[in-house]
């Protein structure tokens, strides 16, 4: 379970009197659930996602994953934690266009301790599972739906227990969005903690829990299932 305790985050350079970007006394995201974070622009959704994933260290408070306080780790330790425990999917996929789908999926092998052959076998299996043809051509020549599935396969290549997604359906059509929602549901049902920032009604409908933010505060929590 991911648990936030007394989180406050202020951006550097903002005046001391300005309200914090995040002010969350307590929030939990359980394993086996798809949690969607929603809220208006500027409400702190993406900042919360970055805090949860260890990309941003909050000004104060704790982010606990099991017994580890991610917010208390140094930058290198947070990188390692993320590599071992989390996958990230971005709104614009952020694939390396000059690489093949398999090259993108196995990218993290170049900076991890995993053996290349093991990662490649896992990458091929994921591409097959998500229905993306494993060809040598550049990933930029694939459809947007296929590119987002490549991005999802990349996030799952080390079989992480947590999956973070930032507006994952924002640049997909309805059919591809629906397919991705199903994938997220399935991944959560396998026991992962899936956290997505989204406005997409399809994804919100598929969620097990919805957290609504406004001005950096949690204004509504809804447990759907």
């Amino acid at each position: 379970m991911l648990h936030l305790e007394a989180i406050e985050h202020r951006f550097e350079g903002r005046s001391a009197g300005a309200p914090p970007a995040l002010d969350i006394p307590s929030l939990s995201m359980k394993a086996g659930r798809l949690t969607v974070i929603r809220g208006p622009s500027g409400s702190g959704k993406t900042t919360l996602l970055y805090v949860l994933s260890g990309l941003v260290r909050p000004t104060s408070g704790q982010v606990r994953w099991d017994s580890v306080d991610i917010a208390g780790l140094g930058e290198g330790a947070r990188d390692r934690w993320r590599r071992r425990n989390a996958g990230v999917v971005f709104q614009n996929f952020n694939l390396i266009e000059e690489m093949s789908p398999l090259g993108n999926v196995t990218l993290a092998a170049y900076f991890s301790a995993f053996t290349d052959s093991h990662v490649r076998a896992r990458g091929r299996s994921l591409l097959e599972q998500f229905g993306v043809p494993d060809e040598a051509r550049h990933v930029s020549s694939y459809s947007r739906g296929e590119q987002q599935r490549v991005a999802l396969a990349r996030a799952l290549v080390f079989d992480p227990p947590i999956l973070f997604a930032d507006e994952p359906t924002a640049s997909l059509d309805e059919a591809n969005s629906a397919e991705l929602c199903q994938s997220f549901k399935r991944l959560a049902s396998e026991g992962r903690t899936v956290v997505a920032v989204s406005h997409d009604p399809l994804l919100i409908e598929a969620a097990d829990a919805v957290v609504r933010l406004d001005h950096g505060r949690v204004v509504e929590r809804e447990l759907v299932a």
């Binding site: 994933s53 990309l55 290198g76 990188d79 071992r84 993290a108 900076f111």
Partner: peptide, 16 residues
């Protein structure tokens, strides 16, 4: 810089 940031988000160290 987005590409480098993505590498970091995927777990690459600053050293990498």
């Amino acid at each position: 810089r987005t590409r480098f940031a993505v590498l970091r988000a995927l777990g690459a160290t600053a050293g990498y």
